[in-house]
Design a protein around this nucleic acid. Structure first.
Lengths: 375, 375
DNA sequence: TGACATAGAGAAAACGTTTACTGAACCAAC
DNA sequence: GTTGGTTCAGTAAACGTTTTCTCTATGTCA
């Protein structure tokens, strides 16, 4: 025994036994992916040299480079991102949290996000909450662990009393983990928090749409609005009311309906209004899906659009132009929305400053579902 | 100097200087996310204990647990996935590579993939190639580095001569990195390779559609097919031809057209056929987008559907039921396609065996765009 | 009371990279 | 000839976890 305190001197790390399970046959059967060490061994150089050769930011002799590359090739070596990330060389992904990627507008937001992220060398993670608010919590937590550079919560916020508090929690938690919360298509929060908000002009869009109808001589405009609890629905409704007021048109309770942003809601509300004998010459649907349902109900009732009733939608879904008649609607720059969200978040990550709140404009697309009323 | 070979004994790791840049003010300003070590220090325990407390798979005294949890809470600690992955505790994500998430069918595949992946505790990465075949190479390479459990190449394969070779390369490269290539909505490869293929019955769908038209008395069916190079287009075209032959109907060159799966291609091909005086009482569009264009062209020509011309589409896009008239079309189980792809790949990852090739059936959805021809 | 299991905790190896230090070899300049 | 700068390569620390050993204390059972 020496006077060495412990019973065994810690073996130097160099010779540590690699427990690699090599397939004995030539078959690439269940072989564990090769590491930079394997490459180094095969090329007869150190791991540092391999790393530097691959990074290409350090002088390496031609001869060494050739040997390393050959080894990489023959071993099918591919760098392990986790190890790379651990030593601080990998930028975090962009995480997209939405209700359901299947909706036409959300898909466009997703496309914009993916594009901008890819252009900036980031990966995109997407997760659907499927309308389960509890899942939003889980997903934010998950993305925090993933060290996402930005976590985008897109659309469909239900503004209950806990909403602001919940978002504040997300913002702080994500900030502490080094990532940024981005609210897309949701209103800004009251409190001053580490959060980026990219929204679009719901009020203005509705105002434009209704103004267009009023300018065409309509006085009684049925409004098929969204649910009060959904953030965008409130703004669109206010846009509707403000437009009426601004043009001195009649407001009537019976014209101002509320329901979900779905086709069936549009269908039944329109049918109910017709059956109840509510009078209207035009109809503004708070989403194109709702407009779709309304068109079906009007058709069923034997009414012509725009002959008997004029219709304006909201969203400009891709097939709006293929409906009968082609639908006049409010275009929302969904793709731009996604792109902007990513851009703002990543710019802030780089420069630690920048714009935190942006509201994109909407545009009325005039097609053939509105008729000029002449008395 | 002692006889120690090196000039400095390597300091024991315990006391290594942590270069943590602590914000001096109370503000959580630019503070680096806290690690398990910080938690351990704050709780006055070892990192091992913290890890075990959080994993919950090892006995820990109540008192210790409380202290650890308090530290976790106050430091906003969140585990670092990269470190976790490095020590082998994280399952790889599912990677989805597609042309453009905006297309209605691809969005549904993506939704299916995301759902199945989430149900199995995996994340979903999505990347768009934007029709740039070179990007496919890059993305496969990227996903290999990400250690994705499965890499799904979805739809839109251009079958040039290099296609099989390219896929073979992907399959082998991914396999060597421990992940699985899955071809979704693409035909199987000739060679025996580590690849999973999930396709749907393009031939059968087209056969059904055309048979339906023939059964309704139509003899001359204009076919608006896809580009020969696209994998699904060839199969659908063969389905069209086989149905004609099976029912003893006429085949005519002028009826068998080729173009892209786009609305405008459908529009112009239909218009051209009408202008050229090609005779047909029915029309089969190889995609609903093409059908949309065809409907527009027919409307423009003052022809009624299905009064003058019957129309069948392919895909069953969500709004097919809202067209005028509601479109009879072939439904493809896109969501199921995505789910199955993920399922097969992950089952294979677990059990190292399982089904490698699956073809999902299609279904003819009869609506109101086909009229029975009576002579 | 001794043998032995068990609960609870710590030290340190291992995961696969990148990179800050070193160091050797070579060359140019004084 | 020393000095000093380049070029190229190796050693080992660092990244943040998990987990295998160890070890101590505290039982329990005969």
């Amino acid at each position: 025994m020496t006077d060495n305190g412990s019973n065994d001197p810690p073996a130097t790390r160099v010779g540590r036994p690699r427990t690699r399970k090599r397939a004995d046959r030539g078959q690439a059967l269940q072989e564990r992916p090769s590491t930079i060490r394997d490459v180094a061994a095969k090329a007869g150089v150190s791991v540092a040299t391999v790393s530097r050769t691959l990074a290409g930011n350090y002088p390496v002799s031609d001869e060494t480079r050739t040997r390393v590359m050959a080894a990489v090739e023959s071993l099918h070596y591919v760098v392990n991102v986790h190890a790379k990330a651990l030593s601080g060389k990998v930028a975090g992904p962009v995480a997209l949290v939405l209700k359901d990627i299947t909706g036409p507008s959300l898909a466009h937001v997703a496309a914009g996000v993916e594009q901008e992220a890819a252009d900036r060398g980031r990966l995109s993670l997407v997760c659907a909450t499927r309308d389960d608010p509890a899942r939003e919590d889980d997903l934010v937590q998950l993305m925090r662990e993933q060290h996402a550079a930005a976590v985008l919560l897109v659309g469909g916020a239900v503004l209950d009393k806990a909403y602001d508090r919940r978002m504040a929690g997300y913002a702080k938690a994500l900030d502490a983990a080094g990532s940024r919360l981005v609210l897309v298509g949701r209103p800004a929060l009251a409190e001053d928090l580490p959060v980026t908000v990219v929204d679009y002009d719901n009020h203005g869009g509705a105002f434009q749409a209704v103004s267009h109808l009023l300018a065409n001589g309509h006085r009684r405009v049925l409004y098929l609005g969204g649910e009060a609890a959904v953030s965008s629905a409130g703004q669109r409704r206010t846009g509707y009311r403000d437009a009426l007021r601004a043009h001195g048109a009649d407001y009537a309770e019976e014209l101002d309906t509320e329901g979900t942003y779905t086709r069936s809601s549009g269908f039944f509300r329109t049918r109910d209004a017709l059956r109840a004998g509510v009078e209207f010459t035009a109809l503004f649907a708070a989403s194109d899906m709702v407009a779709l349902g309304a068109l079906a109900a009007l058709r069923e009732a034997g009414l012509d659009v725009p002959g008997d009733v004029s219709v304006v939608g909201f969203d400009d879904v891709p097939f709006a132009t293929d409906l009968t008649p082609p639908l006049t609607t409010v275009r929302v720059p969904y793709e731009e929305l996604g792109r902007t969200a990513v851009r703002l978040a990543l710019e802030r990550e780089e420069s630690h400053s920048g714009n935190d709140h942006m509201v994109l404009g909407t545009q009325l697309i005039i097609r053939q579902s509105v008729r000029r009323l002449s008395w």
